[in-house]
């Protein structure tokens, strides 16, 4: 352990002033500072927890209360984001997704007893979403609804989420989202010309966003893995790309 301390300690002389100078700039934080803040945010409930496998894909290592997250390309990823929070007692509501696979949600770890569904909000979409943002911890809006609402209403809902400390998750694109996750399927494994069954899917999750999430991140995940839940891609599957992926993730 003493070896670590020596490595972490900044070189005497030039080190501390340089770091201090950088850290004093607005918007720039030291890595240890960011990690500390993230840890503090999680313990104070400012950030809703996500599955450990998804922490790398999200700034703040979780879903910060009041933020708007847009998830494109995968319903499973959307459901997986709800898993840890609902399992730990948070409430989630899904608006405008009549085709939601509740069995899949349960398999990914979502506590379905704390998952309310509003399949057909109809013309009351904005009013329903606003009411849910007041009381539920995570509100999911169905695909394509963000466009249908118009920029003004979408912005108003985002502001309401920020004010009430609710996480607004939009399936599909959302104007002005704080974090944007895009899921790409690279391969499905398990089926072979009539034999076997779909078992695991290799995906790449691209994270972009604003503010603290401005740096794009790519995360390789099995969604789902052989266990039926989200798993990290084992090293041998990453193969030649391992080096640069790790570098990019940081």
């Amino acid at each position: 352990m003493t070896g670590n301390v020596v490595v972490d300690a900044p070189p005497v002389g030039a080190g501390p002033p340089a770091v201090a100078r950088l850290a004093s700039l607005p918007g720039v934080g030291t890595a240890s500072g960011v990690a500390e803040r993230a840890q503090q945010a999680r313990t104070t409930g400012e950030v809703l927890p996500v599955l450990a496998e998804l922490e790398d894909a999200l700034p703040w290592s979780g879903l910060r209360r009041g933020s708007t997250v847009s998830v494109r390309g995968s319903t499973s990823l959307l459901l997986a984001l709800l898993a840890e929070a609902t399992a730990r007692g948070a409430w989630a509501a899904v608006v405008g997704v009549p085709d939601l696979g509740v069995v899949a949600a349960s398999e990914l770890g979502v506590e379905v007893a704390r998952l309310a569904l509003v399949p057909h909000p109809g013309a009351e979409l904005a009013a329903v979403t606003a009411a849910l943002l007041d009381g539920v911890d995570l509100v999911v809006l169905g695909g394509g609804l963000g466009r249908g609402l118009g920029g003004g209403t979408a912005g108003r809902l985002s502001r309401r989420a920020r004010h009430r400390g609710t996480v607004l998750l939009a399936a599909g694109s959302w104007p002005g989202a704080d974090v944007e996750l895009r899921c790409e399927t690279s391969d499905w494994r398990g089926v072979e010309s009539g034999y076997g069954f779909l078992r695991e899917r290799a995906t790449v999750v691209h994270t972009t966003g604003r503010g603290a999430a401005a740096r794009p991140v790519r995360t390789r995940l099995l969604l789902p893995g052989p266990s039926g839940r989200v798993e990290r891609t084992p090293e041998e599957h990453v193969g030649v790309h391992a080096a640069w992926t790790a570098e990019e993730v940081g």
Binding site: A93, V102, V112, A113, L115, A116, L117, V118, P119, H120, P121, G122, E124, A127, V128, A131, L132, D134, G135, V136
Partner: peptide, 18 residues
């Protein structure tokens, strides 16, 4: 409370749990 409020807008069957 929030879910009951939504039921007021959509009717009791508008909000369901699975």
């Amino acid at each position: 409370r929030a879910l009951v409020r939504v039921q007021g807008l959509l009717g009791p069957d508008g909000v369901v749990t699975a």
